[in-house]
Each structure stands twice: as C-alpha cells, then as structure tokens.
C-alpha cells in the first residue's frame, strides 16, 4: 500500500509563520552581507599585489576556511537561541497544553520544533553557498568538500539544536532555557577541550618533573575522547584535512600517546557521536514533555518524609 508522506504539522506551521515575516528576510540579508563582507575582505588581502607584493594562490583556500569557521560559529550561536524558546515559548503562550491534548505525541512536537529551527538555519546556509563558492574561482576546494561542509552544518545544527530543545523542556521560561542551552554549548565547546589539555599537562609534569623519568610520558589519549562531543573540533579537523591535507586531531592524539583508530576516523566518529548524543537529548526532552510520565523524585521525597 502506498503510504502518503505527511509533513509534521508543527514544522509546517512554523515554517509558514517564520518565512513570511520581514524579520526572516532581514536575517538572510544580514547573514549573507556579513559573509560577503568577510569573503571580499579576505580576497582583497590575499590578492592585492600592492599589499603583498606576491600573490600566493595556494593560500586562496584560506577564504574557504574563514567562511566555514564564521558559518559554524554563527550556527553555534543562533540555533540554541532559536530552539531554547521552542517549548518554553509554547508554555508562555499557553499553547503547549492544547497541543498535548491532541493526538500529537511529545516526540512529534519536539521533532517538529527541531525541524523548523534546523530548516531555517539550512535555508541560511544554502543561501550562503554562492558566497562560499567564491573559492571555486581559484580552485583547491572541490564539490565533495562543500558537500562535507553541508553535512557538518546539518549535524552541528541538530546537535546544538537538541541541546536547546532539552533546555526548553527543562525550564518554564525562555530566558532560563536560553541560559542553560548556552551552558551546554560552553561545556561541549570549551570544557571538552580543557580536559585533554589538563590531563596531558598534568601527566607530563608528574612524569618528567616529579618522577624525574625519561622517555615517553604515559598515554593520556583517552582524555581526548570527550572532544568527540565538540563540534568545533570536528570542524577544525575537517578544515585542516580539506585545506592543508593534514589531520591535526590525529597528530595531537599521537602526541598524547594513542587512540590511533579514533584519530584516523575522528571526523566520522565525532559526527556519529554527536548525532547519538542528539538522539539521547531529544529522547530525554520528549520524556520531560510527556504529561503522564512518572515523577520518581517526588515519590522519593515522600518516602523520605514518611520514613522520618
């Protein structure tokens, strides 16, 4: 039997409402103006003979690296702000209860919200592809590289978006959930990098300064595993592989002493891990949204009171 594909009603509604606003057109314009400005400025710096005396065509792909970094940074900052209010905003507008009395499941509500946030970001990214394609005029970056970039954008948007959705389910107010979602971003982008740096530094200090040992310090490659959760590291790994042909993450892991398999396939493993974590965050979010869930902690409190 042929099954008719149906659009998620929340996604359909949000898309219609968002796209027809003047605000969205303004977003697309400003976003692309920023990227165009950066691209033209980089182009000018690299190819203006009066400034450089020599034109180095090999460094032309730096424009691509800069644009990708700017796009990812924007996504990491914009998506949580969008998704953090998706459920909390419905609560504030008193529309969530009505949605929950319909046949829509919490999963459908959450996925609809995430879909609409991501599709808005993807629209921004797709609209910016002509700007990024400026590097094709010089060469060095292929279509496959661009495709890889789009995949990274999509995964990053899902990942940081699901952080925002979970934060939105945990708090009643949009302000609180926005703060929490940026807290998640700080943990994912900064704390995960600090862990291996601290572990590596401490192990070297202990090995060489305290133990006065010689040779290779102990393997602390395991401490780099949390970096699989870091979307910035994934992007850096991608840019360096595409731009310079070297995987700096693999090199860093070798320096720390191990995890060769993870190091070799860092890019794909990190994407898979981030997608897995996104699925987990969304699963928790839909559990939080289910009005008929068991609230165990309350019962525990009651039992404690009774036992007293």
């Amino acid at each position: 039997m042929k099954r008719k594909w149906k659009i998620n009603p929340i996604y359909g509604k949000e898309l219609k409402v968002n796209v027809r606003t003047f605000k969205f057109a303004l977003y697309v314009t400003i976003y692309n103006l920023i990227l165009v400005g950066i691209a033209l400025f980089s182009f000018e710096i690299l190819f203006n003979v009066a400034w450089n005396n020599v034109v180095k065509y090999s460094s032309a792909t730096a424009i691509y690296a800069i644009l990708v970094a700017v796009e990812i940074a924007m996504i990491i900052f914009i998506v949580p702000a969008n998704t953090a209010g998706c459920i909390a905003g419905e609560r504030e507008k008193q529309t969530l209860e009505i949605l929950l009395t319909t046949v829509m499941t919490p999963w459908q509500i959450i996925l609809g919200k995430l879909q609409s946030s991501i599709s808005m970001i993807m629209l921004l990214v797709l609209s910016s592809l002509p700007v990024i394609s400026i590097v094709f005029t010089i060469g060095g970056i292929g279509l496959m590289d661009l495709l890889q970039f789009v995949i990274v954008v999509l995964v990053t948007a899902i990942y940081v978006g699901s952080m925002g959705v979970l934060a939105s389910c945990l708090f009643r107010r949009t302000v609180q959930s926005t703060v929490l979602s940026y807290g998640f971003i700080v943990v994912a982008c900064l704390v995960t990098v600090l862990i291996p740096i601290v572990a590596y530094t401490l192990s070297n200090m202990y090995y060489y300064n305290v133990m006065m040992a010689q040779g290779t310090a102990p393997n602390v490659g395991w401490s780099a595993l949390p970096m699989l959760l870091n979307p910035v590291v994934t992007v850096v790994s991608m840019i360096f592989t595409q731009y310079a042909g070297i995987d700096i993450i693999q090199e860093a892991l070798e320096e720390m002493g191990g995890m060769s398999f993870v190091g070799e396939h860092w890019f794909y493993i990190s994407l898979a891990v981030q997608l897995g974590v996104s699925a987990l965050l969304l699963w928790i979010a839909q559990k939080m949204l289910n009005p008929l869930r068991k609230i165990r902690y309350k019962n525990k409190k009651k039992r404690k009171k009774k036992s007293k």
């Binding site: 009603p9 219609k16 529309t95």
Partner: peptide
C-alpha cells in the same frame, strides 16, 4: 482549557487548519 493560547502571526482560519493538520 480555561485560558486561550495565541499563536502570533496566524490568521483564524490558519489556526484552525493547523489543528486540522494534526488530525491528518
């Protein structure tokens, strides 16, 4: 419910159609 939640930028007919779409 005893309150009325409003979606911004939605016309009355669109509001109705949104809920209709939930039921397919």
């Amino acid at each position: 419910p005893d309150f009325f939640g409003v979606y911004d930028n939605l016309k009355a007919i669109e509001y109705m159609e949104f809920y209709a779409s939930i039921y397919g």
